[in-house]
Simulated assay, not measured.
Amino acid sequence: MGRWRAVILDTILMTAGFGTLTFMGVAKPDIIHHFGISSNEFELQHIAYVFGLFIAFLLGSTRIYEGSFRRSVGIAISWAAIPQMLIPFVGNWNVVVFLRFIQGFVVGLVPLFSTQIARYFVSERPFAKGIILSGIFWGGVFGSISASYILGRIPWKESFVITGLIMYLVYIIWYFLTDDFEIKHQKEGEATVSIWKLPFTWVLGFTFFPALWVIFTIIGFSAKLGYDMGWSKEQVATLSTSLNISKALWSIGFGYLGYLLSRKNTTPRGLFEAIVKVMILAYIVSFLGLVTYSKGILSGNYPLVLASVILVGALQGTGPAFWTSAPAVYPESLVTRANFALGLISNSANAIAPTITEVLARYSIALALAELSIMPLVGILTLIIVSRMKLPIEVKD
C-alpha cells in the first residue's frame, strides 16, 4: 500500500500547486481593476505562465533537482507558492507577468514524480501516472472553485496569500509521509547513449507536443472568448471547471487503459506499443471534441461548448502514456535525464502556442480554432512514425 499512498500524496500536492493554473483567470475582473490594465494586457500573464512550463524543463539539466527527492519537490512547489504570495504586493504589472512566468516552473513536479513512480511500478505505471497527472487538472478545478468562493468573501490580495500558504501546508504533510531517495543525473559525457543525439528522443518528444499545444492554450483562450462574447464570470468558471474535470477523469481512465494493455506484454517493446495505442485513441476522441468545440464557439452556443469539453479533455489521456515512456524505452541510467529532455521537447509547445493562437484569433477566430483542431491529427501522424523506430534500450553499445 505504500506505493499507492505515494501516488495519492503526489496527486494532492499536484492539485495544490496547479491551483495557479486557473485561479488568476477567474480573478480577472479584480486584477484588471486593480492594475488598470486592458484585457489583452491581462492575457500576457497566461502566456508567461505557459512559457514558464517550457523553460522549467531546462532546470532538469542543472543540479537544482539533484540529491534529495523530497527537497527537489519542495523547490518545485515553491516556484508556485512564493510568487502566489508576492503578487498581491507588487505594484507593477510587468513584475506580475514575470512572477507568473516563474509559477510555470511548478511543472517540474511532473518529471520528478515520473522518476519516483518508475521505482515502484512496471505495468501499473500508466495508471499511477494518470492519477498523478490528473492532479494538474484537479488543481485547475481547485483554482476555479476556490477563486469563485474566496473572492466573493475576502479581498483578492488575501485570497492569493491564503492559497500560497495552502500549497506549503500540503507540502509539509506530503514531506513527512513520503519516502526519500537520491536523484542522480547521468552526466552526458559519461553516458553510453546520448539523449539528444538520438532521433528517437526528438520524435517521441513531439508525440506529446500537439496535446500540450491545445491543453495549455485552450484554458486561457476559452476564458478570453467567453468574456468577449458576454458570458458571465460564473459561466466562464463553469467552463474552466468542466474542462479540467474532464481532463482529470480522462487522465485516470486512459491511464488505467494503459495498464490493461501494458500488463499483457511487459517487455520494452510491449510497453511502448501500449503507450502508442493509448495516445492514438486519446487523440481520436479529442479531435472529435475540438471539432464540436469549434462549432459551438463560432455559433456562440454555450451549452454545446460546455458539452464539447467532455471530449476535448481526452487530450490529457495522452499524458499518462507519454510520461511513462522513458522508463520503458531508455536504459535505467538515463531515465531521469530522458524525462526532462522529453518534457523540454514536448513543452516547447507552451512557448509558442498561446501567442500563435492569439495572433490567429485576432485575424480570424475560425482560423485559430482550425489550428487547435488539427493538432490531434499531427499527434497521430507523429506516433505512427515513432512506433516504427528502434527503442534506445534496443540500441547495442
Rank of each mutant, 00 (worst) to 15 (best):
G143Q: 02
K197H: 13
G319V: 00
G253D: 04
A321R: 01
D228A: 15
W4F: 13
P392G: 13
Q45N: 08
P376Q: 13
S286D: 12
I297N: 11
Y256N: 05
E190V: 02
F208P: 02
I87N: 03
A307I: 04
L391G: 07
Q316L: 10
L257G: 03
G60S: 12
S242Y: 07
A353H: 03
L249R: 08
L13M: 01
I245D: 01
Q316P: 01
P83M: 02
I102R: 00
I154E: 04
P88D: 14
P320M: 10
T292E: 14
S251P: 06
F42D: 09
M279A: 11
L86C: 08
D10A: 15
Y65V: 06
I310K: 01
A351G: 14
P376G: 12
S123I: 11
F181V: 12
L383N: 14
S146Y: 03
R153G: 06
V95D: 07
W202T: 11
N94F: 04
P327I: 06
M85V: 14
L306H: 12
I102W: 03
F101M: 03
G52E: 14
S68P: 10
K187Q: 09
I117H: 11
E371L: 10
N244Q: 10
S294P: 11
R119M: 10
Y256R: 13
P199S: 05
I102D: 06
S242D: 07
S240F: 04
E371Q: 05
P83E: 00
S325R: 01
G226N: 13
E66V: 12
N301E: 10
Y65M: 13
A223F: 15
R263F: 05
Q45P: 07
I393H: 07
S242K: 04
L86E: 08
E332H: 08
R5M: 08
S308W: 01
S240P: 03
G67C: 12
L225Q: 15
I136M: 12
K264W: 12
L298S: 04
L59P: 05
F287S: 15
S346V: 01
I32A: 13
Q316K: 00
